[in-house]
Write a protein that binds this DNA or RNA. Structure first.
Lengths: 196, 196, 196, 196
DNA sequence: AATGAATGAGTTTTCATTCAT
DNA sequence: GATGAATGAAAACTCATTCAT
């Protein structure tokens, strides 16, 4: 029964199952079996579609990254002001939790592992720089370039720090929303401070 | 060779080797063998002194925690002002890197794993709350209680976020010092903003 | 090589190899490797089919128990007299050796271990009570209930004792048959003594 | 502090601890550590006095054997009749339990292991033959030699079988005494049956 | 396309033995 | 005479990968 066009379906099934498993069990305890079981598929299929466990892990990170970018892009309209765009960036970063509770734990697992994995580190750098440049390009429309870079650096730190503390303390959604609010207020204070 | 008094020496040897191994290989790839080899001891000794791998991991986290606290306490004198104390807290958090490059990677590995390990999560909470309460108690001497709590929350986020971004980008010491400077300036701006 | 329907084949292969290994090396010296080597399979397969060594051990005891029961049931016909049934019970107990020399040593290893293993003790009790109740129900057709219980108790002791001494002295088949004969004559003397 | 004459004291301490440990944990789970801990001595001392674990195990079996013999000899007087001697033999075999509950479990562990251990098997044979010859020499004073041998064989089987069943069912002392009574009555019936 | 049986290298843990003190 | 720190071989168990079907 060679159903055609199964590839994208199976790949997404396995990526979803990976997020679920890493969120639930951690990256260390996530196995080929824990993933394939959650996906309702056989263990052999992972090698078939991703070459191996490592390939699936990397595909999952790429999926999460593109997802984050997607949320941001979808919010943008031709009339979005720089300040609105900054708010959107923050919302995108904190909305990760809204999609799936496992996702945040999964991000953290991957970033931690990126210290010792070349490909994951490359992907993490993409993410980190993208956040910075997204912030910087918006701030640049509101202040001079040097101040904008500084504001972006501080703002990126604040977003990641509040997000990290919320994840590690196993916060509920309310606390995530509280952190989102703090981040937004911080952006406004940066604009007030440095803005022309 | 039952030289007496070897226990504390061996325990510290093994804890140091654990930090080194987790820093170099990551928590996932750190094994009883990688640790004992680095320590120049046999694999059996880990069970002898720590009951098993898990025991050694937890002892290592406790050691890192007490070390962080130690750096802070040693800087305090009877004449330390609240503002100086806040600077000390930041210095302590960023000085981790100065001691050993492995240490930062090790912290991150542990915090990531704490999502899925009860004891590590407990220890992580101790650390997280300690940073917040250290900050809050200093801020309270400079502003009203509600503002102090808010400042502490923001400041904790900023410290952790800047630290996380520095670690993940495999920054050199200069960048860590730059982050330390940014954090200190942020504290000063908080004092200016909310201070009486 | 996922030939379907291999499960029962593999399970029996491993149980046979366990009996062989325990018979040859003893329960203490029997390892995952000694079993899997005898079975001509890999070591990992034991966890796959039995969850672990303990599971295989227990499955093996259950197999030996059901085998013993099987021998008895197969000998019964609608016209079997109580006395013939008693003879069948004895034959079943002494025929263990006829199938496989390892089996007797294996029984003894398991019973000895049953002193310190809850599940093995439960299975040993099933076996011990089954022998007693089989004997008692036959004796009850030949004498009053109290005498029948006494006869069953004595007879069970005699069977187990003669069997134990034969096993421990590493007897050959002739001696087992001699013991079987002694046991049968003892049953007859009990019937003569207490029979109506 | 080279105290002289410690050797017999230490040896007995370790043998007692071995009986206790094997009775409690089983032979398999008994380790150098479990023994030395129970003896309140260091682990190294076992090698010092017995050459190793195996030496201590064998010394313990020899001790149990000589103990059993001792109980029998102590009961004998110049005026003991053959029938009284038979009763004494039974009492000695069932009195093992009266001394220490661990002892019976220990006997069984050792006999089971004797299937796979040359020295233990030799000692087990000494024990088995001694019981037979003790019984036979007494029966020979009460009946002709062939009947006496047969009676001894049956009686040895009955004693061992009742004892085995009592041990395996983890019986209390009352049941052991009940078995002792059954064995004694069986001896009397053998004398009645074959006696001149 | 998909399965899952089978493998075996790698991991943690246990433990008898050794030996400097 | 006695200790117990240290070793390292051997054990059970895990799991990514392979591959016949």
């Amino acid at each position: 029964m060679p159903k055609i066009g199964m590839q994208p379906v199976r790949r997404q099934q396995l990526i979803d199952a990976t997020i679920e498993s890493v969120g639930e069990l951690g990256l260390q305890a996530t196995t080929i079996n824990s993933i394939s079981k959650k996906a309702g598929l056989s263990s052999g299929i992972i090698s078939h579609y991703f070459g191996g466990k490592q390939g699936l892990i990397e595909a999952t990170v790429r999926y999460l990254l593109s997802n984050l970018q997607q949320v941001l892009i979808e919010g943008l309209t031709p009339t979005t002001t720089p300040e609105q765009r900054l708010m959107l960036i923050i919302e995108a970063n904190f909305s990760r939790i809204q999609q799936q509770s496992d996702t945040t734990k999964t991000w953290l697992s991957f970033w931690s592992q990126s210290m010792h994995d070349v490909e994951l580190h490359r992907l993490q750098n993409v993410n980190s720089r993208r956040l910075f440049s997204n912030l910087a390009s918006s701030f640049k429309q509101l202040m001079n370039d040097d101040d904008a870079k500084l504001a972006a650096e501080l703002c990126a730190g604040m977003i990641d720090g509040l997000w990290l503390r919320a994840v590690l303390s196993k916060s509920d959604q309310n606390e995530f929303e509280h952190c989102e609010l703090l981040a937004k207020r911080y952006v406004k204070s940066l604009i007030t401070q440095y803005g022309a």
